[in-house]
Write a protein that binds this DNA or RNA. Structure first.
Lengths: 211, 211
DNA sequence: ATTACTAGAGGACGAGTAT
DNA sequence: TATACTCGTCCTCTAGTAA
C-alpha cells in the first residue's frame, strides 16, 4: 500500500481537522488505482488508526486522525533536517564585473567583520539546490556588515554568511534590503577562487554553510 | 520499490552534494531489506536518474542527482502546503483564571484593534496540531496590540491572530516577547465560548486562522 | 454508491549460486 | 564485497460478481 500517497491525497481533500465527503471512485481516480484497491487501502489505514471513516449514504466521510497528522509532520521534519543542513549546490557563472567594485569599497569592513582580506571580485554561483538559498541559510545567523556613505554615495548594509568551498573559507554576501532570495549567490574569499579551484563557467561547486 | 524511503536513507548517509561510500549490506540493514533488494532498487533509481553510482572496490559510491533533490524538495513543499494551511486542532483545558484579569486591562485596545468587545476571560486550548502553533501562524501577519503602562504596571505588546471557531470570530493572543511557541493557546472572543459552543475540558476544537 | 468475496495475472522479495 | 542470474513464494492489484 502506498500509505504516504494515500494519506496525502486524503489530506488534500480537506480531511485535516474535519471530515471530508468523497466517493471511493473519485479517490481511486485521483490516485490512479481501482476502487477496490482504495477500499482495501482505506481498510488498512483504518485498522492501523490513521483515519476515521463513516459511510454516509453513497459517499464516505474520512478524517485523518492525530496519528496520521503526526506521521505527516514527522516526515516533514525529517525532510527538513535532511535537506537544509547548510549544503548549497550551484554552478559557476559569469558576473557583470560589478562585484570587484563593491568588494573594494567594503574591503576594510570585510576585514573587520569577517577577518580576511577579500580578493577583489566575487564568484557568481547560480543556485541549483536548495530551490531558494534562504532555505539553506534560515538556520544561520548572518554577520551584519553595516553600510556607510562614501563620496556622497550610499552603500547599504550587507549580510554575510560564512561558507566553505572545497576547504577554503569564504562568505556569501547578500545586500540586506534584498527580499526575494537571489538566484545568483555572490561569494567572496581571501583568494581568487576561479584560479585556486580551477573553476570555469558551468563548473559545479558545493558550498558548506558554517553555522 | 519504496523510492522515498530509499532516497531518504541515502540522503541521511550524506549523499547530498557529494558522494557517500557505503556497502549494500549496510544500506540493506538500515532499510530492513535484503542486499539483493537494495541492489535492485539502486538499479532502478539509477535507471530513473535519481542517483549517480560508481563501484569503488568493495564499496559503492552514491550521490543523489538534482532530480532526487528536486523530488525531495517538492514533497517537502507539498507537505508544507497540506499541513500548514492555518488549521489548528486543540483540546480545551482549564486556565489559571489569570486570563480574565488581562483581558479586562486590554479591553479598550482589543476593541480598537480587533473590533469586538471581548468576553472577560480566555479559552485555553492545548495544541494538538500542528506540533508548534507557530507553524500554523507563520504565514499570517499578526495584529500588533501595543503595550501600555497602567497604575505603574507595564503591560507588554500582544500579538493577535484572527481565528474562527465553529463560525465564531475570535483571536489567539500571544505576548510579543514570547519566543518559544506556547503549548497552550489563549483565545478571546466576543462571546463566552465555553457556553456558546458547549465546551468542556477535553473538548476538541478546531481553529481556522483567518489570513 | 460501498462492501465483500472470488480468481488470475503480475510483481516484488529473498535465497541460492556464480563471477 | 558488488553484480547477475535463476527460482519459488508470497503479496498486491485488477476485474468480475454479488449483496
Amino acid at each position: 500500500m502506498k500509505k504516504l500517497k494515500l494519506i496525502l491525497q486524503i489530506a488534500k481533500n480537506g480531511a485535516i481537522g474535519e471530515k471530508t465527503r468523497i466517493t471511493l471512485r473519485e479517490l481511486a481516480k485521483e490516485l490512479g488505482v481501482s476502487p477496490q484497491t482504495v477500499l482495501r487501502w482505506l481498510d488498512e489505514l483504518e485498522k492501523d488508526g490513521y483515519i476515521a471513516r463513516t459511510v454516509e449514504g453513497k459517499k464516505t466521510s474520512i478524517e485523518l486522525t492525530d496519528k496520521a497528522l503526526k506521521y505527516l509532520e514527522e516526515l516533514y521534519e525529517e525532510l527538513s533536517k535532511v535537506l537544509y543542513q547548510g549544503v548549497i549546490i550551484g554552478e559557476v557563472v559569469s558576473g557583470l564585473g560589478e562585484g570587484a567594485y563593491y568588494v573594494k569599497q567594503y574591503t576594510p569592513l570585510i576585514k573587520e567583520y569577517l577577518g580576511f582580506e577579500p580578493y577583489p571580485g566575487t564568484l557568481n554561483v547560480k543556485i541549483i539546490f536548495p530551490k531558494t538559498i534562504f532555505d539553506a541559510l534560515c538556520n544561520v545567523k548572518p554577520i551584519l556588515i553595516p553600510g556607510f556613505v562614501k563620496n556622497g554615495r550610499t552603500f547599504g548594509d550587507v549580510k554575510a554568511y560564512r561558507v566553505k568551498i572545497n576547504g577554503i573559507e569564504g562568505a556569501i554576501v547578500i545586500p540586506s534590503r534584498t527580499i526575494h532570495p537571489p538566484k545568483i549567490a555572490e561569494i567572496i574569499a581571501p583568494v581568487y577562487l576561479r584560479k585556486e579551484l580551477n573553476l570555469k563557467d558551468g563548473s559545479r561547486i558545493k558550498l558548506k554553510v558554517i553555522g
